[in-house]
Nucleic acid binder design. Structure first.
Lengths: 331, 331
DNA sequence: CTGAAAGCGCTTACAG
DNA sequence: CTGAAAGCGCTTACAG
């Protein structure tokens, strides 16, 4: 038994599919007694038959598909996506009556024209949110151009058609505020993963730049500590925290540096947040209670909303270049 | 300028859309010189016009949609999804030429018939993977039934149409192996979140049951420690680790108990893994290096593959009840 | 090898 | 208030 259609309902009730369509979509409201009764009957038969409108037929009629692809790489170095980011995008799209389709691309398939991912060769989505940080395959940009696919970038700092986090300004401002609040010895800790090839992506360079600018502007000396992950981070941090002039505020860009920082602090008897305040920048953590941390966090919802808003505009006017939207971090 | 169609290409080249369709889809291969040349021309014009096949038109013709919805709740207590689970599902679906559509439901919309989520009232997906652990809205099950939507559950222990992790057997076996390897004092630590209402979901009860069974079968006494999260977990754990008969192996169900465990161990000078081994059950962590832990982990890929395989069968024969597939945890 | 015809399921303007 | 007609873009038998 296959899927039931307007036709099936119409046959049972003894009307045409047109009437059924109108009743079910609410295009008009029946007012006469006879029509009312018939409308009720139509709705009932629809339920009995388990009718659901076929979105493909509807989409074809309307020319609007109602689907947006979230395009990313299978390579986590190129595209990362936290659950909360996905969630925020999903919700922002829902507000625009759009569905979210996941498209994780194997970058190898972007090397030749022969085996391209379907999302790029088929007309199945109205637009794309593209979550490539770096090493963007040239073919990807080329296909978007060629097919004039409305696209918005969500992890690149570009002039146009993008949203990104305003690390530099947000961190500069946050650090300046802390200086005003009395902190003088403020350090920043970075993780240096042996396997991790450092890049010049703005999400790595801008936070540091913002911190250093704030310190220098206040006549203070920036202190950046690169802890070598899984090597001797504890001794490095212990050294930092037992120094005579130990910092009173520690900025950490990465939630994974928190464990060594907290362990070291606990070990040497430095109390968080009484003796040492910690400012976590970026993704949250349930590792330690929020009250113990200053958390300068991503505003996922605002980024998602901005991205979707841009994309909707872009879909309306695909040719137009839209000014990018930097999103401040927030407390 | 709207989207180009087969018709546009046909007009330019001077053939019918039928021929264009056949050339682009490769339904036949041109052999004659003239046909070859024309085919080449068609392909070229298609590229020039940025043609992409309209999947809605194709889907309507074929009756197959090629989309699967991942249905979950917006309430994280009912549905949780780690990025790696999403990834695994996406990949498993790709192997079947299916796209993944995200559908996070607001459970409030499932309380009345009037404002149902679109994924349930429209015919837009061939089937659903349903990620509800508990408090499953009756309306959800009812609609699946009524519309005969092929559905597979991925977080429920049911006889039919489900995949789930075989905690009980896997943990029992793992603990038994550790006992054979010489461990006698094996404890299990649970997190007790003040806000967290404990449930009888199998993912909470089965791990403990498996552990206790293994211990009792070996004539050993199970020790379950419920640490009160953010209250006094450190003193509880410190007490456990300074006991004369302190455990040599600690099972932890939750990566978030790792931080207090490690901090406590570090503080009292118990070395991991030399003095104390830790077995993490479930999701991984990048908190500490994998070499220091025994990690009995989820096999996301196998679960995803099993779920997709079940769903594909279900789509072929929607009426049939399919035997559920328990998935062992793995090292 | 190519085309004319039919149809997938729906909706909308037009006519009654 | 309801229906007959047309069409969205594609593909597949059927005929040449």
């Amino acid at each position: 038994m296959s899927h039931s259609t307007l036709h099936d309902i119409a046959n049972r009730v003894g009307v045409t599919p047109v009437t059924v369509s109108r009743v079910l979509s609410g295009t008009y409201k029946a007012k006469r007694a006879g029509a009312l009764k018939r409308a009720e009957q139509i709705r009932q038969v629809a339920v009995e038959l388990g009718y659901r409108v076929n979105v493909h037929a509807r989409a074809m009629r309307h020319g609007r598909l109602g689907n947006i692809a979230l395009v990313m790489s299978k390579d986590p170095a190129r595209s990362l996506l936290h659950e909360c980011e996905l969630t925020a995008l999903h919700d922002a799209l829902l507000d625009e009556q759009m569905n979210l389709v996941i498209a994780r691309l194997d970058d190898k398939t972007l090397e030749s024209e022969s085996d391209l991912p379907r999302v790029l060769t088929e007309y199945a989505v109205d637009g794309m949110l593209i979550n490539y940080k770096k090493n963007i395959p040239p073919m990807l940009e080329q296909l978007i151009e060629r097919h004039r696919i409305p696209a918005v970038w969500i992890a690149r700092k570009r002039k146009h058609d993008a949203t990104y986090y305003a690390y530099r300004n947000s961190i500069k401002k946050a650090v300046t505020d802390q200086i005003k609040a009395g902190h003088r010895r403020i350090a920043m800790v970075f993780k240096l993963n042996p396997n991790h090839v450092s890049t010049d992506h703005y999400s790595e360079t801008d936070p540091r730049a913002g911190y250093e600018k704030a310190m220098l502007d206040a006549g203070l000396k920036p202190q950046c500590l690169q802890v070598r992950w899984n090597v001797d981070e504890l001794s490095q941090l212990t050294a930092l925290l037992t120094r005579k002039n130990r910092p009173t505020l520690l900025l950490t860009r990465d939630q994974h540096t928190l464990l060594p920082v907290l362990t070291a602090a606990y070990h040497v008897g430095v109390k968080v947040p009484d003796d040492l305040q910690i400012m976590l920048i970026g993704h949250g953590t349930r590792l330690i209670p929020a009250t113990d941390l200053k958390h300068l966090r991503y505003d996922y919802d605002q980024l998602a909303e901005a991205a979707v808003k841009l994309l909707v505009e872009k879909i309306k006017a695909p040719q137009q270049l839209l000014k990018s939207r930097p999103i401040p971090l927030c407390w």
